[in-house]
Write a protein that binds this DNA or RNA. Structure first.
Lengths: 166, 166
DNA sequence: GCGGGAATATTGCTGTGTCTATAGTTGCTT
DNA sequence: AAGCAACTATAGACACAGCAATATTCCCGC
């Protein structure tokens, strides 16, 4: 009757987080693909669209996503080839380059976003009572602040994103 | 004063889940690496260790992890090369092959697991009041059951894992 | 028994990401 | 002003995972 070491309840708790993440990620990826986007491409588009003038330096973009700077170079390569983004030289620092969203990129995001939000509503927000949802978000915030992956973006910090003037 | 479309609160809620996942995953990966394991290798080791006789058919292993069957073939290749696993022919079905954990593999898992559980305690379980934790897990279960990535493993279904007799 | 369809694992090909090295640029120090 | 360290983006080499194709084996109907 010795309790199996590998059935520890704490592990199943994390497994739960992983399952939820994997499930949501899979649903999202499928919906992105309907619009010809990968998950990272959507993420890049979102980050840029939320930034002033729809542009960001390559380094900053890397810092705000899950990618390395090389990874950003390659994603921007693809998206530039597809006409979603374009590079722009930084006038004040010739080392830097901006990635800026094109009209086509904004249009693509605009047609992808409503379905995405609907998915969130269907599979996440809509599944819970308002009180339970609020409680869930509070708890997640606590864990997020503790685990601190690098403080990617404030919870609702507004526009004080410390983007270098350049 | 038009509310920016891209600041929708529902999106930030999902962003929270993603951040928590990414943070935990990064912490875990770093700790696994201390013991010479990748995240998927740890996952494989766990799944096998929890299975009867510490073995599973390649297909079943793929179904229980986030990998395709090709992926399992390659991971098992690496782990077999490292002495953590070995393949065993299935006596009743010559198409199938078992992946079974070696003594060395169990030892590796045994030395990795305590630190892993400690990490979970430090950054996840220990961050929350017992009531908040219970509430969080309940909510996550609701979402998990809704999003259903394929019902990888019952929440605490016990041993009725429907492993084919073979 | 035996022939066709399903199942199983593996392999080649491709896509994508990281790590390391490299080249160009900037600003500070002397 | 020349040297030097830090920063920025990119390119090459590698690792890893998925998809499609392949070979073998099983099972079911005849």
């Amino acid at each position: 009757m010795t309790k199996n070491l590998y059935d520890d309840a704490r592990i199943t708790a994390v497994g739960l987080v992983m399952e939820v993440y994997a499930g949501l990620a899979a649903r999202f990826a499928a919906q992105f693909e309907e619009h010809g986007l990968s998950t990272v491409e959507f993420e890049v588009l979102m980050r840029l669209a939320r930034s002033p003038e729809h542009q960001l330096r390559m380094t900053d973009l890397a810092a705000q996503t899950s990618l390395s700077t090389s990874g950003v170079t390659r994603v921007v390569d693809r998206m530039e080839r597809d006409g979603l983004l374009c590079r722009r030289a930084c006038p004040s620092d010739r080392r830097s380059a901006y990635a800026v969203v094109t009209e086509s990129g904004m249009a693509r995001l605009g047609e992808t976003l409503p379905g995405h939000i609907q998915l969130i509503q269907d599979w996440f927000i809509g599944q819970l009572e308002p009180a339970a949802l609020e409680s869930l978000l509070d708890s997640l915030r606590v864990v997020r602040d503790a685990v601190h992956p690098g403080a990617t973006a404030g919870s609702r910090g507004g526009s004080a994103e410390a983007t270098t003037p350049c």
